[in-house]
């Protein structure tokens, strides 16, 4: 059973000619890590805002179709109600950190939900530990690095114990180390804690091997969704959707066309590439002997 179900949804912002989303259907399942990939104007941010009810409850426009969150239409929830089910971290971490200490930031959500103080304290500690920033507890959010801010933004929705967390382009401001660390944490969140994680990004390279499913968007439409190898047809199709193809996919395609590896051995990410090429080397070396 899906936690969020979007059925044939179209949406147009006020005073805009083109719809931001047209006829999109997507389900989010428990404990999965879904990568929402698309270029500029693909509709990723609009979809993210829809997944936690900001559209239509806060941001209004012309909406058609059904958005079902945990069994109920998203429009039937009272203000702030969806936050118990879906946590959203916005593109800009700065505008979602508005308190004086890290601890207060993470406590803010549960306080709004009227959770007893002892329970809030347990949740704050848990969320900070999961995100690996327990040591920053008493710091001021404005003194943190970009990567730490991003993790804090996520911790502050995790403390509401949502079933799904949605991250709108979380990697943008981070350096490689920050990206690596965050991706690893998100992958653990899905696999160990059973929380569904939706990551919207314009590139796929970095989590191609940790995500369970990829959904590709272009110009407000959902082009395909499925396992990474199913959803990502070829590097050329990715390019037409404005997505930079993974470097190793290009290598894989060329090796196939040169008959160095078979179609079945195609790879997208590092781990699989290593496997395939090592078996190739072993075979070659075995051949020599």
């Amino acid at each position: 059973m899906s936690i969020i179900s979007i059925r044939q949804v179209s949406f147009r912002y006020p005073k805009q000619d083109a719809p931001a989303l047209s006829n999109v259907s997507l389900d989010i399942f428990p404990g999965e890590l879904l990568a929402l990939i698309g270029g500029d104007r693909a509709g990723k941010t609009t979809l993210c805002h829809m997944l936690n009810g900001l559209i239509p409850n806060l941001i209004r426009g012309e909406l058609a179709g059904e958005i079902i969150i945990d069994g109920k239409p998203s429009s039937s929830y009272p203000q702030g109600g969806i936050s118990r089910i879906v946590g959203l971290s916005l593109q800009d971490p700065e505008s979602q950190l508005f308190t004086a200490t890290v601890e207060e930031e993470v406590a803010f959500g549960p306080e709004n939900l009227s959770i007893p103080p002892e329970e809030i304290d347990r949740r704050v500690t848990w969320a900070l530990e999961v995100m690996g920033i327990e040591n920053l507890r008493k710091k001021s959010p404005s003194a943190l690095s970009g990567g730490q801010k991003q993790r804090l933004a996520i911790a502050s929705v995790l403390s509401m114990l949502p079933k799904v967390i949605v991250l709108d382009e979380p990697l943008g401001m981070l350096d490689p180390r920050g990206r690596r660390d965050l991706i690893e944490i998100l992958s653990r969140l899905a696999k160990e804690k059973g929380i569904s994680v939706v990551i919207s990004e314009s590139r796929i390279d970095e989590f191609i091997e940790i995500c369970d499913r990829v959904a590709i968007m272009h110009n407000g439409s959902l082009i395909s969704s499925g396992s990474p190898s199913d959803a990502i047809a070829s590097s050329d199709t990715l390019k037409t959707y404005g997505i930079e193809p993974p470097r190793l996919q290009i290598l894989s395609e060329l090796m196939i066309s040169e008959n160095l590896i078979s179609q079945k051995q195609s790879f997208l990410g590092e781990r699989r590439a290593n496997e395939v090429l090592k078996s190739l080397i072993d075979r070659e070396k075995g051949g020599v002997v």
Binding site: Q79, G80, G81, R84, L88, L90, Q96, F108, N112
Partner: peptide
């Protein structure tokens, strides 16, 4: 947007 997402109200 963030206030609403964090259960404000």
């Amino acid at each position: 947007a963030s206030l609403v997402s964090r259960g404000y109200g």
